[in-house]
Nucleic acid binder design. Structure first.
Length: 504
RNA sequence: GAUCGCGUAGCUCAGUCGGUAGAGCAACCGCCUUUUAAGCGGUAGGUCCUGGGUUCGAGCCCCAGCGUGAUCACCA
């Protein structure tokens, strides 16, 4: 709070200067610095492409034509560079299409407009009209014959060359990051495209997009800590969903054949370079499909999105070939030198690796704990399917009929990240009930506060869910891979940060 | 949650051995019709994250706290 005081005090000179300028404009020039509607605006990139070399040449000739042949445009943007040179002022505007110089000659503008143009600040939003031409140095620009300020920026701007570089400031003041760092704008534009392409892909394959509850009385579908909340009028506790799975499956029961949902999940876990408490996931289910059906679908989706070999940090990831495959058990054995089904061998390895409660903990939970090390053996440059997960750690997955300890489940790994899970869905209500009950047995009090049996879901399975394949993929992580960002915070517009100021 | 790093002007950063605060950009003033991160010249701008401690003296050393980044853990 002291920090805030001092910030306000030391900023005051810069803010005061801008406020004083604002006052002068309104009082002396009679200008409304907060702007108004402008029709027929041309995006800056489009205005640039309107440039006609022949027209510019004609204007530079000994005897320029009477009629100005240069195309005209009205452009708007935020001032990101400004150079006032006496009777000539140059500025560079930026909008979401790009940058373009606006050149202002005192001879072409009304006195008040020229004065305004020569005095605008970095960060102001302006509108200029005029022919698209070029300067003596060959820079394509709009030669303004009309110039207006449409929004005064009062905040002190960041340094104009480096922009905001401090990661914290970039996340906290994303709106500044966006206009000063074009890469940021590009990343989020790309994210939008990717999500849109995913939707089109799914629709093309006959999937219907749905929206299921984000506030759920029972938070199921994944093993994660949920956020809790409360509905006052009904006086009930609710959880923010950790997965949409159990609702999407209800839709299969209801008769939808192919459904998907792209939306947020919320998990009350730690934050890291790969984890934000709210993250976007796509889940999809296909009646009469299985694990293989959705593996094939997702592989072609990801290959289509990536379209080739993409850099990721220090890696080059090849999406063009069929993704690698290895079974969970093989990877385990390759890493730890024992069969994962061999309980005593697993306990021995676990004890040697100092896994907690190696002697008493459930055998398959030990296998899961040891598997982390195995994940590191996967070639990060090769998208890889890890198949045949242990049934014991896959409570919503159908066990294999030929090997009941193994589930029809695969997980996709790329660049060392878990990208998604793929299943042949469990639709036997009795086995499902048993799995849920097993899971609830022996949980501690803390977990008991948010884990409970979703009996309505079991009722739905009793009504009958067709056999199905289903999957979920992390959209943020896909965007990270496709835009070459190794921190999830760079692909989420407003990642969760602690509020500034401490104390509270 | 653990370990390590970082926090100095609005922004980007220097700051030597502990000797009392520096630059560039931005701001302000003046000049200027061809600049393109930076036209030229001048002026001003600081709770060195916060609180303690050591010391004649702390931006610098020590302790605690806050924020943040990286790695690990939990998870996707």
């Amino acid at each position: 709070m002291n920090a805030t005081d001092s910030k306000e005090r030391s900023e005051s000179d810069l803010v005061a200067a801008r406020r004083a300028k604002l006052k002068r404009w309104t009082e002396e020039l009679g200008i409304d610095p907060w702007g108004s509607r402008v029709d027929d605006l041309t995006p800056l990139a489009d205005a640039r492409s309107m440039f006609l070399e022949s027209a510019a040449d004609a204007m530079d000739a000994e005897e320029p034509p009477n009629e100005d042949p240069r195309p005209r445009a009205t452009v708007a943007g935020r001032v990101i560079q400004h150079r006032a040179m006496g009777k000539l002022t140059f500025m560079v505007l930026r909008d979401d299409s790009g940058d373009l110089q606006v050149s202002c000659s005192k001879a072409d503008l009304e006195t008040a407009s020229f004065k305004l143009a020569s005095k605008v600040d970095y960060g102001d939003i302006v509108v200029a009209s005029g022919p698209v031409g070029r300067t003596k140095r060959g820079e394509i620009c709009v030669w303004a014959d009309q110039f207006e300020v449409h929004c005064k920026s009062l905040a002190p701007p960041p340094e104009k060359f480096h922009g905001l570089t401090d990661a914290e400031q970039r996340y906290r003041r994303r709106y500044v990051d966006m206009y000063t760092n074009p890469e940021t704008m590009e990343t989020f534009r790309r994210r939008s495209q990717i999500v849109s392409e995913i939707r089109r892909f799914m629709e093309r394959h006959g999937y219907v997009e749905v929206e299921t509850p984000m506030m759920q009385p029972v938070a199921g579908g994944a093993a994660a800590r949920p956020f809790g909340t409360h509905h006052n009028a009904l006086d009930i506790d609710l959880f923010l969903r950790i997965a949409p799975e159990l609702y999407l499956k209800r839709l299969l029961v209801g008769g939808m054949r192919k459904v998907f949902e792209v939306n947020r999940n919320f998990r009350n876990e730690g934050v890291s370079r790969q984890h934000n408490p709210e993250f976007t996931m796509m889940e999809a289910y296909q009646a009469f499909g299985d694990c293989e059906t959705v593996i094939e679908l997702a592989e072609s989706l990801i290959r289509e999105l990536a379209g080739g070999v993409l850099p990721y940090g220090d890696l080059e990831i090849d999406y063009t070939q069929a993704f690698d495959r290895i079974s969970y058990g093989d990877l385990f054995e390759r890493t730890h030198g024992c069969n994962m089904s061999d309980e005593s061998a697993v306990r021995t390895v676990a004890a040697k690796k100092h896994v907690e409660d190696a002697a008493t903990r459930n055998h398959w939970l030990l296998v899961e704990a040891l598997f982390d090390e195995a994940e590191d053996r996967i070639d990060p440059t090769r998208p890889t399917w890890v198949t045949d997960f242990p049934a014991a750690i896959s409570p919503l997955t159908r066990p294999r009929s030929d090997a009941p300890d193994i589930a029809w489940r695969a997980e996709l790994f790329i660049a060392g990240m878990e990208i998604g899970n793929f299943y042949t869905e469990l639709n036997d209500p009795d086995i499902q009930r048993a799995r849920f009950t097993e899971q609830l047995d022996g949980i501690n009090d803390e977990e008991a506060a948010f884990r409970s049996l979703d009996s309505d879901f079991l009722d739905a399975l009793c009504v009958g869910m067709p056999p199905a394949g289903g999957f979920g993929i992390g959209i943020d992580r896909i965007v990270m891979l496709l835009t070459n960002h190794t921190s999830i915070r760079d692909v989420i517009l407003f990642p969760l940060l602690r509020p500034e100021g401490g104390e509270q």
